[in-house]
C-alpha cells in the first residue's frame, strides 16, 4: 500500500481501482502545484525586495487591518478542515450527500474569505493604496491578489464538483477530481501562511 501512496488523502484499500486510477493525475497535479509555488515564490521575493519602494505612499501601518486578516486566516483554516471532512466522507461513506454537504460548507467559508479580502482592498483604495501608487503597492496587490484569484478559481471548481456529483455521482473520475481539488485547497492555505507571516505580520511587527 505504501508503495503507491501519493500526496493528499489516499483512497487506498477502500477503493483500490479508484486509487490506482488516481495515482498519475494526483502526482501530476502535485507537480503543477510545485510549479505554481515557484510563481508565488518569485512574487514573495519581489515583495520583499520592494518593501521600501513606497515612493512616499502608504505602507503596512496605514493599509492593513489585522482583525480582518485574522478573520480571513480562520476562515481559510476552517475551510481546509471542512474540505478534509469532505474527503473523508468520500473515502469512507461512499455516499453523495455527506460529501456534497461538506463541500457546501467549505464553499461558504471559502466565499466569505474573498468577501473580506475585497472589503480590505476597498479600504486600501480609500486610503490611496491603489497598485498604481508605488512599486511596493504593485508588489502587494500582485501577491495578495494572485492568492485571492486562486481562491476564486477554487470556488468555481467546488461548484463544478457539486454539479459533477449531481450528474455523475461518485464515479472514479469524480473521486480523482475531488482529490485534486483537495490538494489545491490545502495548497492555498500553505501560501496563505506565507502571506500572513511575511506580508501582514512581518509588515506590522
Amino acid at each position: 500500500m505504501s508503495g503507491t501512496a501519493h500526496p493528499g488523502l489516499n483512497l487506498g484499500a477502500s477503493d483500490a481501482r479508484a486509487h490506482e486510477r488516481s495515482e498519475t493525475p494526483v502526482f501530476g497535479f502535485w507537480v503543477f502545484l510545485m510549479s505554481d509555488l515557484i510563481i508565488f515564490g518569485i512574487l514573495f521575493a519581489h515583495y520583499i525586495v520592494m518593501t521600501d519602494a513606497r515612493a512616499f505612499g502608504p505602507g503596512p501601518a496605514q493599509l492593513f487591518d489585522l482583525k480582518s486578516v485574522a478573520a480571513q486566516t480562520s476562515l481559510l483554516l476552517a475551510s481546509s478542515y471542512t474540505y478534509g471532512m469532505a474527503s473523508l466522507a468520500m473515502k469512507h461513506r461512499e455516499r453523495i450527500r455527506p460529501v456534497a454537504l461538506w463541500l457546501i460548507v467549505t464553499a461558504i467559508l471559502g466565499a466569505t474569505f474573498p468577501g473580506l479580502e475585497l472589503r480590505d482592498f476597498a479600504n486600501m483604495i480609500a486610503e490611496g493604496g491603489v497598485p498604481q501608487r508605488s512599486g511596493y503597492l504593485s508588489a502587494l496587490w500582485a501577491l495578495v491578489g494572485l492568492h485571492g484569484l486562486h481562491v476564486a478559481v477554487g470556488l468555481v471548481w467546488i461548484a463544478v464538483m457539486l454539479a459533477l456529483l449531481a450528474v455523475r455521482g461518485l464515479s472514479n473520475r469524480t473521486k480523482t477530481r475531488l482529490l485534486l481539488l483537495g490538494l489545491y485547497w490545502h495548497f492555498l492555505d500553505l501560501i496563505w501562511i506565507g502571506i500572513l507571516s511575511i506580508v501582514y505580520l512581518g509588515g506590522l511587527a
Binding site: H46, V49, M50, A53, R54, A55, G57, P131, Q132, R133, S134, G135, Y136, L137, S138, A139, W141, A142
Partner: peptide, 14 residues
C-alpha cells in the same frame, strides 16, 4: 496595461 509600477522608472519601480 494597468499602470502598475513593477519595472517603471518612477514611483519605486525597479
Amino acid at each position: 496595461t494597468l499602470g502598475f509600477h513593477f519595472f517603471t522608472n518612477d514611483l519605486g519601480g525597479n
